[in-house]
Amino acid sequence: MQFFGRIKDIQPAGIDGVIIYFHGDTLTEKNEAVQAMARGLKGRRLSWIKSLIAGYDSLLVLFDLQRADTHLVYRTLRQTSPREATQDEHSHYELPVLYGATGADDLAVISDKTGLSKADIISLHANQTFKVFTVGFSPGFAYMGELDEALRCPRLASPRKKVPAGAVAIADRQTAVYPNASPGGWNLLGRCPLPLFKADGSHPVTLRAGDTVTFTEIDEATFKELSDSHG
């Protein structure tokens, strides 16, 4: 099979799935190609497409087996123009963070791993614009990046059994906020007091691929105030 556009490879992913991998010089470029193809396909409103699950550099297309096969997916990909995002399609969020918050403070560990001071760690994380690459793993968990190379930080050797809701974390060159308490293997920087995505269907903040996020540093008093006002 011949590939085209920014598609690097296409592989079967089960009877009812095809996974597409994309080219790009940087992770951001690859991810933009993923999002552009996802938007192009969504815009065609093909009812035989059951789901479009975006990864960092890949797009998993699940289809209705009774009405489609892998050949139809290939043909459709050829006939679909990737679409760049328009300005108003994506939201920008400012998320307040209490860095070094009790119960979510790995700053010393991160300092050991990166050789940066706590102040440097915070300054490389706060006031930057990060992009949401994909949402998944658990409901509403948004993978954002990319962090400055200096802040690159491997995952914990063994994951924690429980990370509190709102924990702001980093791993490799990614950052994320745990929307709900869950197990997790990322290094914790602090906590965001705003309620994020809730699995029960109420979504105060729903991050989507392509959205941008800026973290702002707050003090303990502001954290308490914001936590209280959101119950």
Binding site: A13, G14, G17, I53, G55, D57, S58, L60, L62, Y143
Partner: peptide, 10 residues
């Protein structure tokens, strides 16, 4: 490997 979509039965 970057994280990617997992279909049932993978």
């Amino acid at each position: 490997l970057y994280s990617e979509g997992i279909n049932c039965g993978a």
